[in-house]
């Protein structure tokens, strides 16, 4: 078959190819595409953590929030009566105006797999939201800026501080493992 049997095609593709291209997609095509999907998933996968980073960016954009800096982490072991080593962690975050210090301690006896969060906010009057997984816990600090959130499950968590005056921007912390 020669090319002059069909009208000239700008791409220079052969009539056989054009005929093949005009057929409906069949099972062999779907198999090829499935194989391509597997190849690209293996050689060039979506980077780990990318979706989490995107979700964080979107939260920031939606809140118009300032991101606090993780200032200080200290880890002190506390030996309890049963000689278990129970870590107590203290973390400080700072933003341009606010500072938040949280101390993580063991949960109540009735809820041993949870964490107690003791927090202290300085620099302004805020409400506190603790986001962990899909859960959200709210706390209102007392007049000294102190708050407690109990029965917190373990996981990746961040705090959102919302100024009660509603004029200043909210502050969101980086993720900490609780």
């Amino acid at each position: 078959m020669s090319d002059d049997q069909s009208p000239a095609d700008a791409s220079g593709d052969s009539p056989q190819l054009l005929a093949l291209a005009a057929e409906p997609i069949d099972a062999i095509d779907l198999e090829l595409l499935a194989a391509m999907r597997e190849v690209y998933s293996r050689i060039d996968p979506v980077p780990g953590g990318l979706t989490d980073r995107i979700k964080f960016e979107l939260t920031l954009a939606a809140l118009h929030a300032e991101v606090a800096e993780l200032q200080h982490v200290s880890l002190a072991g506390v030996r309890d009566e049963a000689a278990h080593y129970t870590p107590t962690e203290s973390v400080t975050f700072t933003s341009s105006r606010l500072s938040l210090m949280v101390t993580l301690g063991p949960g109540r006896e009735e809820a041993p797999d949870t964490v107690r969060v003791d927090g202290w906010v300085t620099g302004g009057t805020v409400t506190v939201e603790l986001r962990i997984g899909d859960e959200s816990r709210l706390a209102t600090p007392d007049e000294d800026g102190r708050f407690v959130i109990t029965d917190v499950p373990h996981g990746a968590a961040r705090f959102v501080l919302r100024p009660v005056d509603d004029v200043e921007r909210p502050v969101i912390t980086p993720v900490v493992e609780i």
């Binding site: 791409s11 593709d13 190819l17 054009l18 093949l20 291209a21 005009a22 057929e23 409906p24 997609i25 069949d26 062999i28 095509d29 090829l32 595409l33």
Partner: peptide, 15 residues
């Protein structure tokens, strides 16, 4: 380019 017909790209790859 593709769907419901095969289109040239897929036709070339298949060939």
């Amino acid at each position: 380019s593709i769907g419901p017909t095969r289109g040239r790209c897929l036709a070339k790859l298949r060939t």
